[in-house]
Design a protein around this nucleic acid. Structure first.
Length: 511
RNA sequence: GGCCCGUUCGUCUAUCGGUUAGGACACCAGAUUUUCAUUCUGGGAAGAGGGGUUCGACUCCCCUACGGGCUACCA
C-alpha cells in the first residue's frame, strides 16, 4: 500500500519538552523528509487538569531552535486538517465514541471512583489482576449490565459517564512494528480502556486514533512507552473499519539515564549537571527552573547530531552529520531496539566539533552579547571580536564559555595563575621582561612573527630557555596558563596593551 | 505481581551463520607543539549464563538471569 508519508509529533503541553521528545520529533522529521512526506505537529491537550501555561509555546520554540520544523500544525501555519490542538477538536470526538457504541465495540459506564476502587480492592483481595475487563465489566454499572431504560434514564439525567472500549475476551493481536518486527499481545491481559471521559474529552487512545485517521497519518513513530497500548489502537482501527488505512507503527527505544538505569528524567539533569531539556524553563506553578541545551552553550546542529546517533546509526563509521545528511541516511530499520544511555562526554565532544566548525562571524554575536554585559562592547570593532573568536574557538566546548576564555583580549588581567608564577619566576625574569618590552617598541611592523622574533632574541640574550619562560610570559600577558598561540594573542591585543601588561606584571612580581 | 520489549568494550554502536568481533566517546602511553590545549601514533577494553539447531554461532530457537516500559476518566 503506497501512500504519501505523513507523520506527526504529538506532545502534550504538560511542561517543557523532554530531550527524548526532541529525538522523537527529529526521527519523525527525518523520516518524513527522507520520503518526501509531511511532518506535522499536533498538540495533545485532552487532559485539561495537566495543562501548563507556556508549555505549548516552549514546544514550538524548541523545535524551531533545533531546526526540526513541521510543515503543518500549531505554530507552523496550520494546514488542511486544522485545528491541530485536540482541545479545539473536542466536538468531533463524541460522534466517533457513539459510532463505536452503536457498533457494539464500546459501552457507557457509570461507575464512580468509589465503585472502581471497590472493584480493585475486591479483586486484589482474591489475588486476581484488578482490571476492568471482559469478566469484571459484568459486575459493574454500565450499559452492558444495566437495562436499556436505566441507561436511557441516566443519560437523560445527565449522570456522568465514560465510554469504554469493549475488548474481545481472548484474542491474539499481532502487528508488525517497523523497528521491532512482529509483536503480539493477548486481549485477555488488557482492560476496557476509557475512550471518552466524563468531562466530554476523549482520552489519548481515542483522540490519537481518530486524529491520525483524519489527518492521514501513514506512520506512527513514537516512544516505546506506547508499545503496550498499541494493540488497543489497532483494535480501534478495526472497530472503526479503518484497518486498510491504519498507519504503520514504529516504537523507539527510550533514552536512559547515564548512571544506573531507568528513563532519563528531569531530576537526572540537575543531579548530573547536564540539561535534559532543549531550552531553559521556568515552571509557572512551582517556580522550579530547568536548564536547557541552548542556554548551556550547545549548538542546535550538535544536539541534532548527537540525538540522531542515540538510537540510530548509519551503518558505517561516519559520526558527524548535517541535518541534510541525516535526512539522506536515515531509516527506521537502522534504529536500535534497546534503550540508550545518555553520554555526557560524547555530547560535549559533538558540541566541540560544531563549535570549531562555526564561522567566526556566527560566533561573534555571542561574544558581543557578553561584551555588552560587561559594558565593553563599544571599545572594540567587529573585526577585532571576530578575530578573537577565530583564536579561541579551538579551545572551547560550549559557546557560553567564550567570555571566560577570551576576556583577556578585552581587559588587562586582574588576577594571575600564581602556580605558574611561583614555579617559573626568578631573579633573571625582570631584566628579560624589560628587554622584551622595550624591543617591542622598536619593531617596524607589529605582528606575531615580529613579536616572536623579539622574544627569541631576548631569550637568547639572557640565556634562558623558551621552555622555561613561555608559559610564564603567557600568564603575565593573559593571567592564565593556557590558550591560543601566544604570539597571535600578543599581536591582537596590540603594542599598548603589551606594554601595560608587562609593566603591571613586573610591578606585581618583582619585589 | 501480570503483560510486553530488550541484553556486543565503562558509554553509543557495527556485525544481518564462517571477521585477528570493527568504529566513536572516555581512559592510559608515546610523539609533535619553545607553554596549556589541539593534532598524530599506539594501548587496554565486549558478545549475561545455560541448553539446543548447525560442519560452524555474537548472529537462529528455548530456558534462566538481569534491565526497561506499561499496568489511571495521564499522555
Amino acid at each position: 500500500m503506497d501512500r504519501r508519508v505523513r507523520v506527526r509529533f504529538a506532545p502534550s503541553p504538560t511542561g517543557p519538552l523532554h530531550i527524548g521528545g526532541v529525538r522523537t520529533a527529529l526521527y519523525n522529521y527525518l523520516f518524513a523528509r527522507k520520503h518526501g512526506g509531511d511532518f506535522l505537529l499536533r498538540i495533545e491537550d485532552t487532559d485539561q487538569t495537566r495543562f501548563v501555561p507556556g508549555a505549548e509555546e516552549y514546544i514550538i520554540e524548541a523545535l524551531k531552535w533545533a531546526g526540526i520544523e513541521p510543515v503543518e500544525g500549531i505554530g507552523f501555519g496550520d494546514g488542511p486538517h486544522a485545528p491541530y490542538r485536540q482541545s479545539e477538536r473536542k466536538p468531533m470526538y463524541k460522534q466517533y465514541a457513539m459510532q463505536l457504541i452503536e457498533a457494539g465495540h464500546a459501552y457507557y459506564a457509570f461507575d464512580t471512583a468509589e465503585d472502581l476502587e471497590g472493584m480493585r480492592e475486591r479483586l486484589k483481595a482474591s489475588n486476581v489482576d484488578a482490571k476492568y475487563d471482559a469478566i469484571t465489566r459484568s459486575t459493574m454499572k454500565n450499559s452492558l449490565t444495566l437495562s436499556e431504560d436505566e441507561v436511557g434514564k441516566r443519560l437523560e439525567n445527565g449522570d456522568p459517564y465514560v465510554v469504554r472500549f469493549k475488548l474481545p475476551r481472548k484474542e491474539e493481536v499481532k502487528f508488525h512494528d517497523e523497528i521491532r518486527g512482529w509483536v503480539s499481545f493477548n486481549t485477555a491481559q488488557l482492560d476496557d480502556k476509557v475512550l471518552y471521559k466524563s468531562d466530554g474529552m476523549p482520552t489519548y487512545h481515542l483522540a490519537n486514533v481518530v486524529d491520525d485517521y483524519l489527518m492521514h497519518i501513514s506512520h506512527v513513530i513514537r516512544g516505546e512507552e506506547w508499545l503496550p497500548s498499541a494493540p488497543l489502537h489497532i483494535l480501534l482501527y478495526r472497530a472503526f473499519g479503518w484497518e486498510d488505512v491504519m498507519p504503520k507503527f514504529a516504537h523507539l527505544p527510550l533514552l536512559l539515564k547515564p548512571d544506573g538505569n531507568g528513563k532519563l528524567s528531569k531530576r537526572d539533569g540537575d543531579r548530573l549537571g547536564f540539561p535534559v531539556f532543549p531550552l531553559n524553563w521556568l515552571d509557572p506553578n512551582s517556580g522550579e527552573k530547568s536548564s536547557g541545551y541552548r542556554e548551556a552553550g550547545y549548538l542546535p546542529e550538535a544536539v541534532v547530531n548527537l540525538l540522531a546517533m542515540l538510537g540510530w546509526n548509519p551503518g558505517n563509521n561516519q559520526e558527524l552529520f548535517t541535518i541534510e545528511e541525516l535526512t539522506e541516511a536515515f531509516s527506521l530499520e537502522r534504529v536500535s531496539k534497546s534503550g540508550a544511555k545518555f553520554d555526557q562526554n560524547k555530547a560535549k565532544w559533538y558540541n566541540q566539533q560544531y563549535v570549531r566548525k562555526l564561522d567566526n562571524k556566527a560566533l561573534a554575536p555571542i561574544l558581543t552579547t557578553a561584551l555588552i554585559n560587561e559594558g565593553l562592547a563599544s571599545h572594540f570593532t567587529a573585526e577585532y571580536v571576530e578575530a578573537v573568536c577565530g583564536l579561541v574557538k579551538e579551545k572551547m566546548s560550549f559557546t557560553n564559555e567564550i567570555w571566560d576564555i577570551s576576556k583577556y583580549f578585552f581587559q588587562d588581567p586582574s588576577a594571575y595563575d600564581l602556580g605558574v608564577i611561583e614555579k617559573r619566576w626568578n631573579e633573571k625574569i625582570p631584566a628579560l621582561l624589560h628587554e622584551i618590552k622595550s624591543e617591542i617598541e622598536t619593531v617596524e611592523e607589529y605582528n606575531a612573527a615580529a613579536i616572536e622574533g623579539v622574544y627569541n632574541q631576548a631569550l637568547n640574550n639572557h640565556g634562558i630557555a623558551g621552555k622555561d619562560f613561555l608559559q610564564l610570559f603567557r600568564v603575565c600577558l593573559t593571567g592564565i596558563a593556557g590558550g591560543p598561540p601566544l604570539f597571535e594573542i600578543a599581536n591582537l591585543i596590540g603594542k599598548a596593551a603589551m606594554r601595560r601588561r608587562i609593566e603591571h606584571a613586573l610591578q606585581e612580581f618583582s619585589k
